[in-house]
Simulated assay, not measured.
Amino acid sequence: MATLPAAVLSTRGAMKQGRSSFSGHRITILGAGGFMGRYVTSRLGAVGCQMVLPYRGDELYMRHLKPMADLGAISFVKYSIRRLEDVEKVVAGSDVVINLIGLKSETKRWSYQDVNVTFPAVLGEVCTDHGVGRLIHLSALGAATDVDCGWLRSKALGEAAVKDAFPLATVLRPATCFGEEDKTFLNSKAKLCRHLPAFPLVDGGGARAQPVFVDDVAKAVVSAVCDPSTAGKTYSLAGPGIYTQAELAQIVFDGIGDESTAISVPKAAAIAAASATAMLPDPWMWPDLVKLEAVDTILANEPTGTGTLADLGVSATSMDPFAPRQMFVYKKKSPFIDDTVHVREPS
């Protein structure tokens, strides 16, 4: 069985100093510009890690990450996951690589196979060739090869591919994440509840989800980096609460202060409608999102032997007190009036 390099084992218990210290780690974070990436970058920057943050497009979209570490601790490098030499360039010299890249909806240019399966395999091979000590790969809760959701299937295949190329990879399987900047969960649901005449629930919204706080996942990533004993293991990350899709919709309607307009839509009809909206720029719905909302993604259905947030020393945050605060900006009534009672009396 493969073993960790001595240099990696020697870092056990490190990363307990502050922002201006040096943890001893040089970490490449792929996908740092996304929702999850800012939290992981902030957590690692706070303990003195040097970070390489590859990006595509314009560096302008990465500048919000600059203050998340000490001066000189963050390097931005332009690259493409389709160029092997670029991937090697951003990995070379790092002792830890974190892969947060994941494609939620397919486009004409990018497929699930490209991003969620092929790239993790290539990344694992590159990390092996360059002697990287640790590889942390983010998958998804509920990922399996036998589910009726192409995204979840691709995530399962990606796990197998990265493990085949880098057996000591640590795989984290987070549930749907909630947080201020989420794009496909509470914020998306709130916008639909505000603007659609009726909010669609796939087959009545009976499927269950166990959302996890995005910063809890970031803490789990840092914990995995700190603890070499997590190498080669898989962890399923979920919050403490289990909700049906119908209950999630009601939480959003309560948060924005509106009567529920939720209606049941057959899965086949929802997929047909999502196929049309998927052709729009920045679509709010696509077929695999419908399929994801029609299956249970909860810890109880996870493979036996996987760890949890608790095993990584992270206490799960409840969504219940968080959701109303996030829905505040979507309220239909004045935010200073609650049930006709003035929160702040007008002058």
Rank of each mutant, 00 (worst) to 15 (best):
P5F: 01
G24R: 02
I27N: 02
L30Q: 05
A32M: 02
S42C: 11
V47I: 15
L53R: 07
L71V: 14
S75R: 15
Y79S: 09
D86L: 09
I101N: 06
S111N: 08
T118G: 05
L123G: 03
G124R: 00
G124Q: 06
G124S: 04
E125I: 03
V126P: 02
H130Y: 12
G131W: 03
G133C: 09
R134A: 03
L138K: 03
A140I: 12
A140W: 09
D146M: 06
G150Q: 14
D164Q: 15
A175T: 08
C177H: 13
F178E: 07
K183T: 15
K183H: 12
N187S: 12
R194I: 04
A198F: 12
A198W: 10
G205E: 12
D216V: 02
D216S: 06
A218Y: 01
V221Q: 10
V222E: 12
C226F: 10
K233V: 00
E247V: 01
T261A: 04
I263Q: 08
V265I: 08
K267G: 11
A269C: 14
A276K: 09
T277V: 08
A278D: 08
G307S: 09
L312D: 00
V314T: 00
F328C: 11
D338N: 12
V341D: 13
P346E: 13
